[in-house]
């Protein structure tokens, strides 16, 4: 057989992989490919879900230094310690159960890693400085979702007002009548409240009701003093 291919240029490694990937299988049956693909899918999806759940527990959340202060506050609340021993851990309140919303929350949590690295709230002073802003973000999210994460455990439909305190029963009935959501009254249920929180929460409600974007409290996490300047100069240096 003539070896005319000697004069032709051999395709590169990536091109050969690409061609092989899109070529029909000459040795494997359709059934084999379907079963193998199904098993590979189970392994991949199981592994992906397992990895996601590994980032969805209290140990993982508090492994960051910046989480120590709000975790300490949480340990003094009823969601950590109570007569029944039932607990709500970090992801129970901060990570939605529904797949779509959970993935979104995980993507958005990447900013927490960034701020952990640059130390935005690594001291008590910095934490207090940013507390209202951080709380505002959570309140806005909960208001917009109708306190979805609270309702994973709490539901008006199953509350027995006759065994609640009179004030609680009255306020819960009022909340049903006026269509309020959990976070409307229960800010600071698991973490300390910053000064001026009521005004801030009111401004969130007004902005949401008017359909405008929420203008959050001005101590934005994007304004991080020296860290911002360092980041800006780094980026400028890259682009110049």
């Amino acid at each position: 057989m003539a070896r005319s291919t000697n004069d032709e240029k051999q395709p590169g490694f990536i091109r050969r992989i690409w061609n092989a990937f899109w070529s029909p299988s000459g040795v494997l049956s359709l059934g084999f490919l379907i079963i193998a693909g199904f098993l590979a899918g189970i392994l991949f999806w199981g592994g992906f879900h397992w990895a996601l759940e590994e980032t969805n527990n209290e140990e993982f959340c508090i492994s960051c230094h910046t989480m120590s202060k709000n975790f300490d506050e949480y340990t003094e609340t009823v969601h950590y310690n109570n007569h029944s021993g039932v607990r709500a851990t970090c992801p129970d309140c901060h990570v939605p159960h529904e797949w779509q919303h959970k993935v979104k929350a995980k993507i958005m949590a990447s900013k927490d890693l960034f701020h952990e690295i640059i130390g935005t709230i690594d001291t008590d002073e910095k934490y207090e400085e940013h507390r209202l802003h951080m709380a505002s973000l959570v309140w806005e999210k909960m208001k917009k979702s109708d306190s979805r994460e609270c309702r994973n455990c709490h539901a008006f439909e199953y509350m027995d007002f006759t065994i609640q305190e009179t004030r609680a029963a009255k306020d819960h009935q009022l909340a049903i009548d006026e269509g309020k959501t959990c976070i409307d009254c229960h800010q600071g249920i698991a973490h300390g409240l910053p000064a001026g929180y009521l005004e801030e929460y009111r401004s969130i409600i007004e902005a949401l009701e008017s359909g405008e974007g929420v203008e959050l409290q001005k101590s934005s996490l994007l304004d991080m003093g020296p860290a911002t300047e360092a980041l800006k100069s780094f980026l400028n240096g890259k682009t110049e």
Binding site: W99, Q100, K104, I107, L137
Partner: peptide, 18 residues
């Protein structure tokens, strides 16, 4: 930045969802 993350998160959620 947060709005951008919001949009990216929504896109990722949809890519990995229905």
């Amino acid at each position: 930045m947060l709005n951008m993350l919001d949009i990216l998160g929504t896109i990722a959620g949809n890519v990995l969802s229905l």
